[in-house]
Simulated scan of single mutants.
Amino acid sequence: MTKFTDHSFLKDLAMLRSPTSSYTFLSYLHEHNRLVTFINRGSFIPSRREYSDYLIWAAEKVAHEPGVLVHYGERVLSIQSDDLVVSVTSLSESEHPVKRVRRGKHLVIAPGGTPRVPPSLSALAVRAPSRIIHTSVYAHRVDGIMHDILSDIIFKRPSTTTESGSTNFRPVPEVLLGIQARLIPSNHSPSDDSPFANEIFDPASTDFFFNLNNKEARSEAKREYENTNYGVVNPNTPAKVSSTGILCAMAAEPYLRPES
């Protein structure tokens, strides 16, 4: 994907804690011989695909650390604690399921974000799963969706025939240009990435948020920072869509240079 992430590479997995850590984004670039290329881009915001690859690299790096055991594809059945030891019982989701019990002094739970489809679109998403999806599954579904769209354009809709006998189908770039119209700053406010708004992402803000004394106070704090760089459109995204839209439009309708 070419969409930009919403934060600087300096907010990686280790930089704020230890700039010399081998798990930084710069270490990833250096190991893959792409550090100079990244610097020459003139932007310190990595692409979403590049940052995703960095996360995969870091996960594999952790899995190979001495004394570290990493298991994927397991469903947690129960969690028990006696104030001294935490016991987690899990079942592997494989052809031959294996139940495991792990014990330790500490347990960290990181469920991540929960995809949400607005109620007004939920029913439509059920009836047309190939056309209405959540962005969390975009990378896995986009190839199938584009195949359906192209099939619909080529095989189901009336086409026009030019004098030369060639058939012209409705150009796909119209879709991109439609998206561009919905992403321009006049319709969607760009993110507030000022130093003041970004203070909410400082490590100290974690204590501030969880020390708020009631649910209403937390909700008010969340509303106050809704326009931070994780809540709305990144200013880089409309510019990227605009540039891509222009190039696609030119490719769909090439102009003729006057003969000299």
Score class of each variant (00 low, 15 high):
Asp6Ala: 08
His7Thr: 06
Phe9Ile: 04
Met15Trp: 09
Ser22Arg: 12
Thr24Tyr: 01
Leu26Glu: 06
Tyr28Ala: 03
Leu29Glu: 05
His32Thr: 15
Asn33Asp: 15
Asn33Tyr: 07
Arg34Lys: 15
Val36Tyr: 01
Thr37Pro: 01
Arg41Trp: 07
Arg41Cys: 11
Arg48Ser: 12
Asp53Gln: 12
Asp53Leu: 11
Trp57His: 05
Glu60Cys: 10
Pro66Arg: 03
Leu69Tyr: 07
Arg75Phe: 12
Asp82Pro: 13
Asp82Leu: 10
Asp83Phe: 11
Leu84Ile: 13
Val86Pro: 11
Leu91Met: 10
Leu91Phe: 06
Ser92Tyr: 07
Ser92His: 12
His96Val: 09
Pro97Ser: 09
Val98Cys: 12
Lys99Ile: 13
Arg100Gly: 02
Arg100Thr: 15
Arg102Cys: 06
Pro111Gly: 07
Pro111Asn: 10
Ser120Gln: 13
Ser122Phe: 05
Val126Tyr: 09
Ile132Gly: 11
Ile145Ser: 08
Ile145Asn: 10
His147Glu: 10
Ile149Arg: 03
Ser151Gln: 10
Ile153Trp: 01
Ile154Met: 06
Lys156Cys: 10
Ser159Glu: 07
Thr161His: 04
Thr162His: 10
Glu163Cys: 04
Ser166Lys: 14
Asn168Gly: 05
Arg170Pro: 05
Val172Phe: 15
Val172Ser: 06
Val175Ala: 07
Leu177Ser: 04
Leu177Lys: 03
Gly178Ser: 12
Gln180Arg: 15
Ala181Asp: 15
Ser186Arg: 06
Pro190Leu: 05
Asp193Leu: 04
Ser194Ile: 00
Phe196His: 00
Glu199Leu: 00
Phe201Gln: 04
Ser205Tyr: 00
Thr206Trp: 00
Phe208Asn: 01
Phe210Glu: 00
Asn213Trp: 00
Asn214His: 09
Glu216Ser: 14
Ser219Glu: 15
Lys222Asp: 04
Arg223Asp: 04
Arg223Trp: 03
Thr228Cys: 01
Tyr230Pro: 01
Gly231Pro: 03
Gly231Asp: 02
Val232Phe: 05
Pro235Trp: 02
Pro238Gln: 13
Gly245Arg: 04
Ile246Asn: 02
Met250Gly: 06
Glu253Phe: 15
Tyr255Arg: 08
Tyr255Ile: 09
Glu259Val: 12
Ser260Leu: 14
